[in-house]
């Protein structure tokens, strides 16, 4: 009669939680296992020092320089974050302090809907509308610039919603006190609201950057996918993510393993960014 349902439940829940937490460890280990043969055959430094990216099943006849693609990923992310951050902060300010309540609610709904639109739809729109427009300004069209524009549109909702949430977290007293001191709206924002929510805003920007660097489909569709270090905004580029999506279908042997290495690099970069964002949000840094 000593059937302890509470104890059983607790152990059941613990098992499930460990399984859920274990997914990340599983992903990490499988990427590592698949990368090992590339690290052993090709070696870590050849990914940065080889003359070009001409992968081959056999590591001796191929060359494996990832630098142009790492730079490609980095430039697109930087451009998108640079453009999206001010727009997103202004959007959130609009929602919170400037717009009449009905307009603010409507605008927030628009942003929420667009945060949920899949990347393949943005990519498709970029391919059929944006790329031809850029081609008219300067051929070939698919370019770093197209990638930056599409990513800006994609991460703007992410950063705007996080900033919006950060503004909501500012204690009401701050606003009341600022009003009582007779501050203008801009003075209030600059002196009280923005400093009080700077951790939330920073976390939003970091997460936006993470989304930008991990984005695959939209970038794959608008960036042209030429492996080169871009010299201008109108040059086509290939990012790490697009490279995986393009070559995984036929890659074997060391080539396949090299693609897992680039996935591993992405995973480590993102994990670092998320942890920094968490620390920033928790006010540790």
């Amino acid at each position: 009669m000593k059937f302890n349902s509470d104890g059983i439940l607790l152990w059941l829940l613990r098992t499930v939680a460990v399984a859920a937490g274990g997914v990340l460890i599983l992903i990490f280990s499988f990427l590592l296992i698949e990368s090992i043969s590339a690290f052993r055959e090709i070696g870590f430094f050849r990914f940065f020092s080889d003359p070009s990216w001409h992968p081959n099943t056999n590591s001796n006849t191929g060359s494996y320089n990832l630098v142009p693609m790492i730079l490609g990923s980095f430039y697109v992310m930087l451009g998108a974050v640079f453009l999206a951050t001010p727009l997103a902060i202004l959007s959130a300010l609009f929602c919170h302090f400037y717009a009449p309540a009905a307009v603010a609610g409507f605008y927030r709904r628009i942003i929420e809907v667009f945060a949920g639109i899949p990347s393949v739809v943005y990519g498709f729109w970029g391919l059929v509308v944006l790329v031809p427009l850029i081609r008219e300004v300067q051929p070939p069209g698919p370019s770093l610039l197209a990638g930056i524009f599409i990513l800006t549109i994609m991460i703007l909702p992410t950063i705007a919603l996080m900033t919006d949430a950060a503004f909501s977290g500012v204690p009401k007293n701050y606003i009341v006190a600022a009003k009582a001191l007779g501050m203008r709206r801009w003075t209030m924002l600059r002196a009280a609201i923005i400093p009080a929510s700077r951790f939330g805003i920073t976390a939003g920007v970091i997460l936006g950057a993470g989304r930008a660097i991990g984005e695959t489909m939209a970038i794959l569709m608008v960036c042209g996918n030429v492996v080169q270090t871009p010299r201008g905004l109108f040059d086509p580029i290939r990012t790490l993510t697009a490279n995986i999506a393009l070559e995984m279908a036929y890659a074997t042997g060391d080539h396949r393993s090299a693609l897992f290495v680039s996935g591993f690099i992405l995973l480590v970069a993102i994990a670092a960014m998320v942890m920094v964002a968490d620390l920033v949000k928790a006010d540790v840094i």
Binding site: L26, T216, L259, I270, A271
Partner: peptide, 17 residues
């Protein structure tokens, strides 16, 4: 913390895994 990182992992990495 594990789940926060998992939420940020790029979808192409999930594909590889």
């Amino acid at each position: 913390c594990n789940l926060d990182v998992l939420a940020g992992v790029p979808s192409i990495v999930f594909g590889l895994f």
